[in-house]
Nucleic acid binder design. Sequence first.
RNA 1: GCCCCUGUAGCCAAGUUGGUCACGGCAGCGGACUUUUAAUCCGAAGAUCGUGGGUUCGAAUCCCACCAGGGGCACCA
Length: 497
Amino acid sequence: MTANQPYRYDVDTTAAEVQAGHGSIDDGAETGVTVSIAGRLMLRRTQGKLAFGTLDDGSARIQLFAMAKSTPDFEGFCSLSIGDWIGVAGEVMKTRRGELSVRVDSWTLLASTERSFPDKFHGITEQDTRFRQRYLDLWVTEGARDTFVLRSRLMSLTRRFLEDEKFLEVETPVFHPIPGGALARPFTTHHNALDQEMFLRVAPELYLKRLVVGGFPRVFEIARVFRNEGLSTRHNPEFTMLEWYQAYADWNDTMALAERLIEHLAVELTGSAVVTYAGREVDLTTPWPRAALDELIAEHAGVEVGLEQPIDELRAIADRLDVHVEPHHGPGKLILEIYEKTVEPNLWGPVFVTDYPREVSPLSRGHRDHPGFTERFEAIVAGRELLNGFSELTDPVEQRQRFDEQVSQRDAGDDEAMVVDEDYLRALDYGLPPTGGIGIGIDRLVMLLADVTTIRDVILFPTLRPEVAPATVAVTATPGEVTVTAEKAAEPEGGEA
RNA sequence: GCCCCUGUAGCCAAGUUGGUCACGGCAGCGGACUUUUAAUCCGAAGAUCGUGGGUUCGAAUCCCACCAGGGGCACCA
């Protein structure tokens, strides 16, 4: 059928526009308005000399009304398959039963489906089929498209918001010679020509701050980042992080801007600053409360913790609270672990948790009046960590010390600890002005505003094991040559690769 | 990485104390039908029961291993 496939088709409206423009006409009435639309045939009801179809063009569904006496190739129209792409031109009218329809005065098959579409009523229930064949899921699962439309609008609104604040959108490398900017295990890869091991970025942070050094005082990036960690309803190995850096600003400015952005997105996308997530309300109206991490521990766990306490005492508290402890954990890490165990599950938010220990915040500037802690904050919204920011550490000498501490932690067995980035230190040597910065998990923000509880419902193609065994797919080391031997792999298509 | 659950035609789905057990629906195929709405009606067809072993006279059903997915735990955002 593709042999006769037309090269193009003139479309002049959408199903949603037809519904919006003519929904109120009388039953059985005609409008005199002729439209041309295209999409997939999702339902079909033939009835002798009449046929009804349901066309979905991605915007909405609209009924097609065909009559043997006026529809060209009526037999052919009746034998279309569910899932076929067609273009239809005809008058907008309403049937006697009051269904707004486009009368099929002419129609064109644009593409036929060679595979049966899923059950027209039940759709797809197997989760992996939904993710692997998202192109079907988007058609047959109620609301599946809406989430991704919301995601797109969120991206667009975010860009506009930051641009209005005079931020410049930039793109920084995905291949990093040194992984940095977050405490996370990276993916590794190899560049043949350079014979160089490379890391996929775990965060764009260090490059973005280099750009502040370079004279862009307000920069942001919507960055796909990669972390070699487990999968869960809240984690996908590749995910999207918004980061921005603002010169001459501190963490207070950054918190204020972040809460304002999120309130703005909620109002624009859901119509209200009060959103419902998993059946429970979250009021995103600014300002959000701020609470120091050690004070929260005192409040929720009833214990006083401080960096001046002997490490054994902290270990004892951790043990008593059934907190997981590793030998290489210092006092700051212990306090963070105690917080995550005793406080975080009880927070719904929104709330800015502030004052993280220096030991676990190697890129954050020391707190101006809370020794041993930093001007770092995370926001908990709907019970989840949504963002992480701080007054940036600008002093190259102290930054080197922090890197060295990270190296010690790595040597002590923490494989998520950072390594020294000499070029970043060199950049700091040239002077980084006071700067506030932040990273916001975009996928989780979409989950919040779309009210979905699994990250796989906000990522079009989430990471899954391949359907074919990896061993059957061989990628040669020769540049430009990729050999795919898997049985189910796509057969070569003609034309350029 | 650990624990629990799931896997029956393109899709949905019954059957899991082992014995006409492969029920049924949608889609597809053939036919009827001039206002349907998951259209309806009639007819014919479609299944290595995730894969591979094992137990048994007999396995979708019991056992083992493996593959894939989901949920939870752990780690992170």
